[in-house]
Each structure stands twice: as C-alpha cells, then as structure tokens.
C-alpha cells in the first residue's frame, strides 16, 4: 500500500477521533475509552511492525508495555523524577530490555521466538510481585497506587481533566504511529520485509539480519515502553493484573481485526476492538464469547482484516 493511502487512512481515523470531544467531551466514560483507543493503537501498531512486517513472532509486547509503565512509575514515585523525563527514561530502558530479549531470538526460528518472548511475559508477573520487584518499588501484588500525572510546564494531564489529556494522548499516538509509518516506508521497512520473506536471500544481498532485527526490537520496545509509561501516569495506579491473558488476547484481536502486516490496520483494529469490547459489556459473561465469534466471522470474511477493504488485489495476495 502506498504511503499516501496509509497516511490518508491514518489522517481520517485520527481526524475523526480529534473531533469526538466536541460531541462527547462531557461524557467521561467515552473520553476514557477514546484515550485507551489511542494508547492501544500505538501498542498494536508496534506489535504489527515486529510481527507483521519484520516477521518476528514476538509475544512480548504486553510485557514491554508493563516494563515501561512500571519503570516510569518507580522513577516518579521512588526517585521523584519529573514525569516527562521518567517516561523518556522508561522508553529507553524498555528499548534496552527489548534488545536483551531480542538477542537470543536472533538465533531462533518463529515458534521458538514466540516461546521465549511469551516466557518473558510470564516471568514478569512473579518478578514484579516477588522480592526483587518489591525491592525495586513495584509495590508487590498491591502494585503502585500513587503515580503522579504527566506534568508539562505546570500543566497537569490526568484523568481529572480529560479533554486536554485526550489531545495530549492524540499527539503522542500520532507522533508514534507516524514514526512507525516512516520506518515502514524507509529502507528499514524494506529490510524488515525482505528478512521476513527470505532471510537467506536478504542476507545474500547485504541485509544484516542481526542489525535490523535488533533495531525492530529496540524501536517497538521503546515506543511501547513510552506508551506504557504514559498509561501509568494517566491511570495513576498500576498492578500486575495487566499481565493476565485478557489484555494480551485483546491486543491480538486488535491486530487480527486490523489485519496483520497491513499497517495502519492495527490503528483501526484498536479503535474497533476497544469500542466493540465496551459495547458488548452488557452481555456480561457472554461478552468474550461474542467477541470471539465476531472475530472468527471477521477472519472468514476479511482474511486481511478491515484493511482488506482498501487493499488492491496484488497487495492482498502478497
């Protein structure tokens, strides 16, 4: 898909989101959902970049989100680091963790990468709840309950003043997804696709699998870590509950709904999934089953996700 078409879809999606406060700005619940859509749009796009474009079956995206969230929260609460600095440091720390996780994955084939990265996800909860986590300031099983909101030049962005917070989140989300778009359309993106399609051939043409795979781990971990850090400051509290399978599955549904490797499908997937999840809330215990059935139906009708509606035949086949 051309850059122009991708940018148009992103522009329309974010444009619609941008005017929503004019209609629903006074409904706190909807504004919260919109903010969450913007956060998940970035996380899902990062996952799409590493899995859909680079072909690395990383299942560690939620873990990186939580690492970013906890790092920034601990820096702010324990060390009184200003929130903006803490968010950036959390992004850098998460990128470092991404590289550390990525290194052993370079020697592994698809399913084993999934196992290693999901192993990191599964290990994180006991670490944060255990003695190491408590020593670092994770708050153990109770979590961190008093995370200060983002403060820029004395102006506070928190759940108490949602409209400015919404626009700040929109700004962050747009910046992060534009970075992802730029990467996809740059020679980095070409290297990712070439390595995904045929690593052997790509390397024989001078593409360094080591360099580009680590780059994608670092970049996606950084952006995910930044959004995780922002999430912590926005919500004001964190617990390891995020590491249970609900969020992991919901994120995966976002990717499937948007279309894996069909950026900016992940952004659409995030908006559709979060909205559908909330609309189905009255179904109670049947919500997950209904959402699952809708996903199965969507996969059957649109194997390329909702992006399949915009894809040319040649793109769809590829």
């Amino acid at each position: 898909m051309s850059s122009k078409r991708m940018a148009t879809i992103m522009g329309v999606t974010y444009g619609i989101a941008a005017i929503m406060p004019f209609f629903v700005g006074d409904i706190r619940f909807i504004m919260h959902i919109l903010i969450m859509c913007l956060i998940w749009a970035v996380v899902a796009s990062c996952w799409d970049l590493i899995m859909g474009f680079a072909g690395i079956f990383s299942f560690g995206q939620v873990a990186f989100f939580v690492i970013g969230a906890y790092t920034s929260a601990i820096l702010s609460v324990q060390w009184n680091v200003p929130s903006v600095v803490a968010i950036l440091l959390a992004g850098v720390f998460t990128a470092g963790m991404g590289v550390i996780v990525g290194l052993p994955c370079l020697k592994l084939a698809g399913p084993y990468v999934a196992l290693v990265t999901f192993g990191v996800h599964m290990t994180l909860m006991p670490v944060l709840r255990g003695e190491i986590g408590i020593a670092l300031g994770s708050g153990g099983s109770q979590g961190i309950l008093t995370i200060p909101p983002v403060n820029i030049l004395g102006y506070t962005f928190s759940s108490a003043n949602q409209i400015p917070t919404f626009y700040f989140t929109l700004f962050l989300s747009v910046v992060c997804t534009v970075i992802i778009l730029a990467v996809i359309k740059s020679y980095w993106g070409t290297a990712f696709l070439a390595l995904k399609d045929s690593e052997e051939f790509a390397m024989s043409l001078g593409v360094s699998a080591f360099k580009y795979k680590l780059m994608v781990f670092a970049l996606t971990s950084f952006l995910t870590g930044v959004m995780g850090a922002f999430y912590g400051h926005y919500i004001g509290m964190l617990s390891t509950r995020m590491l249970e399978l609900d969020l992991f599955c919901t994120l995966m549904v976002m990717l499937v709904v948007g279309g894996i490797g069909r950026f900016p499908g992940a952004i659409l997937g995030a908006f559709i999934t979060v909205t559908a999840n909330e609309l189905l809330a009255p179904l109670g215990a049947y919500r997950a089953v209904t959402l699952g059935a809708l996903v199965v139906l969507l996969v059957l009708l649109l194997p390329n996700g909702v992006m399949g509606l915009w894809l040319k035949r040649s793109d769809a086949e590829a």
Binding site: Y187, T190, A191, L193, A194, K196, D197, S198, E200, F201, A202, S204, L205, G206, V207, S208, G261, A318
Partner: peptide, 24 residues
Amino acid sequence: FQIPQIFPSLTVKKSISVGSRFGA
C-alpha cells in the same frame, strides 16, 4: 539459490533495489 528465493511482499523494482541499497 537452487530453489528461487524472492520477496513476495515487494515489487520487482523494490526487490532489485534491496541488492543496491544494502549490498552495493
């Protein structure tokens, strides 16, 4: 390669550009 290796995600021009961009 004996079994043709290609990049199905890329066009012919882009595939050839991979060699130029990264190998030259």
